[in-house]
């Protein structure tokens, strides 16, 4: 069984029996898509909400919610997935330092979650599970055989959605 590691601002697609994993999500959001019929899984580690925030040059596709999600869908379609069968799960978007809540840049977690939801809505993909917000870091792992998402935090242990 292969575990494919997804880095920050990166994305990837897997087929059974591989797993997709990303570590240390803070206010970044882990977006996972799964097509149960064709058994194709995808994961993106989104760092910022909108590609319009990019200040110079070509934005890195995987970094922004509004570019990462459409691109992830495309990559999954190349592997035989169909958008009609895709469902989404979200994890992350925490606010690690509560006191900074007033600063727009520091409220990045909730903004990332909102932007992911908007992009998923645009693609008409249903969100079936969500573990977002709070003030803890998360590590997530997606099983491409069944679409189960494992979420690990420091204080609350491991849960599956």
């Amino acid at each position: 069984m292969e575990i494919i590691k997804i880095g920050m601002a990166d994305l990837g697609v897997a087929k059974p029996p591989s797993r997709l994993r990303t570590t240390g999500l803070g206010s970044c959001v882990g977006v996972v898509l799964y097509d149960e019929v064709h058994k194709v899984a995808g994961m993106a580690h989104v760092m910022l909400p909108e590609s319009t925030l990019a200040k110079n040059g070509e934005p890195t596709v995987g970094k922004y919610a509004d570019t990462a999600i459409p691109y992830l869908i495309q990559q999954m379609q190349k592997e035989g997935a169909s958008i009609r069968h895709m469902v989404a799960k979200l994890a992350g978007g925490a606010q690690m330092f509560a006191f900074l809540g007033t600063n727009d840049m520091m409220r990045i977690g909730p903004r990332n979650v909102e932007a992911c939801k908007l992009a998923l809505k645009g693609a008409q993909i249903k969100i079936v599970a969500e573990d977002t917000g709070g003030n803890c870091g998360r590590t997530i792992e997606l099983d491409s055989t069944n679409g189960v998402l494992q979420i690990r935090t420091v204080n609350q242990g491991v849960k599956e959605v």
Partner: peptide
Amino acid sequence: GLAVDMAGAILSY
């Protein structure tokens, strides 16, 4: 601010 958590989650700030 103080946090006790995964280094990746914290440093990404």
